[in-house]
Design a protein around this nucleic acid. Sequence first.
DNA 1: TCCGATATTTGTAACGTTATAAGTACTATG
DNA 2: CATAGTACTTATAACGTTACAAATATCGGA
Lengths: 350, 350
Amino acid sequence: MSTQKPPNSSTHTTSKPTQKTIAEITGLAVTTVSRALQGDEKIAQATRLRVSKVAEEIGYVPDRAAQRLRTGKTKVISLILDPHNEILGFGNSLITGVAHALAGTDYHLNVTPQFLGGDPIEPVEYIVRNKLADGIIFSRTRPFDERVRFLRERSFPFTTHGRTEFGYQHSYVDYDNEKFAYESVLRLMQKGRRRICVILPPNHFTFHQHLNYGYMRAIRQEGLQRYIPEGINLDSDMPEIFEWAQTIAGTSDAPDGFICPGETSFLAIANGYRQAGKERGRDFDAVVKSSSQTLHQIDSQIDNISEDIRQAGALLGANLLKTMLHPDGPFEQTIQDPDITFPALKSYQD
Amino acid sequence: MSTQKPPNSSTHTTSKPTQKTIAEITGLAVTTVSRALQGDEKIAQATRLRVSKVAEEIGYVPDRAAQRLRTGKTKVISLILDPHNEILGFGNSLITGVAHALAGTDYHLNVTPQFLGGDPIEPVEYIVRNKLADGIIFSRTRPFDERVRFLRERSFPFTTHGRTEFGYQHSYVDYDNEKFAYESVLRLMQKGRRRICVILPPNHFTFHQHLNYGYMRAIRQEGLQRYIPEGINLDSDMPEIFEWAQTIAGTSDAPDGFICPGETSFLAIANGYRQAGKERGRDFDAVVKSSSQTLHQIDSQIDNISEDIRQAGALLGANLLKTMLHPDGPFEQTIQDPDITFPALKSYQD
DNA sequence: TCCGATATTTGTAACGTTATAAGTACTATG
DNA sequence: CATAGTACTTATAACGTTACAAATATCGGA
């Protein structure tokens, strides 16, 4: 038994296998291995098969840093999330949806936190500056969103959750908040409510406008009185909303119907009213927008209009992938239709 | 004016500045620039200053892919998050905390989703396999956690939220759930409650044991009857808990005190009891563990014991950084003390 | 003036991958 | 049998950074 080491034997002992390892095993050149792994048609099918089999056997995984350095592509999609509490589980649902869209591709999902109170442009600038991703997804879009402008100027691929009001187009996924608000008013009227209040998001968000339009359209059409709280919005802390609700519950023109585009605002309002001796179903009703069936199942009297956040995430991911594949293709724009399935009114006679 | 291009003129037009650009401007070698930027003491201070000034001016940012390829370090910390709804805003708080700990270092935070129902080892294996991070943080730790074993075997740096029961040690941050449960029982007794029920997490989690120990210690000490629901746990859906609560509320030995290690379980229980005609404060009381002050501020009668998740994140980040810096140093182990500050009992006479 | 010590800078190679251009072998055609 | 085409493979260089070894300059002392 010889202890001598042949001069050209590479010591693939425990070190991570690379294309070089595959090349040595198969006797091919590294270039061939690389192209075979990419599925290049110019490489004989037999070779491609052999290479991928060996790769599989030795547990080869491409070095993303090297790929990234060479190609300039990070193969990463960044999802920017800010910690608003509007809809329970919003972040997780969105993540799950995007991850679902990315499954099967070689793209990784990277979640970048948007700090409370921080400028929304910051994480975007940071990602572009350091080339941390090939594409960006963000939410809470504004009519003239700085981030959209910034990314457009640099031709950096992105998709937004929510629309803008710029003259030019871009890829987005949005929910038909106008319809949600409109239908909510009608539903509350069906239940005999006349003093209908809507909780709006801060007015710098585009979906503030949409909710407002839908609400006002129904209010005017039905000849009702507009009731939009001042000082309170969808992003207010629960205690703030709670206190406000408790206060107004005692007034003579207290609302008897609420449109809550999120669960937390509803919970705070219901608690505030209850503290003031008012009961839901008897003294007031509400239509709540939620992503899960949670609230609805706890109390079937709460009218629930669903916004499928997970689906929104999946659409955002798919739209972004398309946008990156065809930079000059059409803009992928999707509007989600509210799922309006109210329980029959007769059930209230029980 | 000559239109001829000197042979060696590099065209630093609009292309991204690199160390080479700095080298050309300063007349130094690329190596010198690299070492100057690293703050190497062997480089003259004057040079270091000049280099960093030029770098600043031309907007140089290091190419992370190149650094990563060369050094093998990703400079990324991965936080694995699963979408449990136990404590409201758990994920966001944890992210914020870790990000805070990482601010000022050159580490990036990468959030990896743990899919519901997926094997917890999967994201860990994926990260290690593809070398997507230098360190990992995860939560929901189990007594003999597969992930801990996996990472230990490979000497991959990590910190956990929650302890294990392995013979060997590792870095962690945990909350004193034993104390939380114990103190909760005492508090409910103070309020005159005797049939005290605790909602426990699934029993494969370590903090199930801790909560159980604390609860049982107090129960035995006070000579009470143990009340632990079957079929329901902290991870059950709200509707499930709601239904369970509604059912037991009607029984003769219905609990009059609840220990809820999370807000959602409390909300479901309170709703279930209310549906059965029972009111909190009159028919039952609860001690709730929460991260925000939300619930407590909505209703001051809810006794709240706080778990500072944001701080936990900051500690996890700090612990992990230390662990990575001193791989053979002592294990960083931190236990968070519950913040027990109940409102005075006399306030209930109002 | 020469020597060694100290301070500072530099050239070379490499991390793992892929784009480009260039090669080789085989087959069909005239 | 030369030639052109086809099918496939390969050598070379480069992405931007840093580790290592080597070079150069500066200075005090004998």
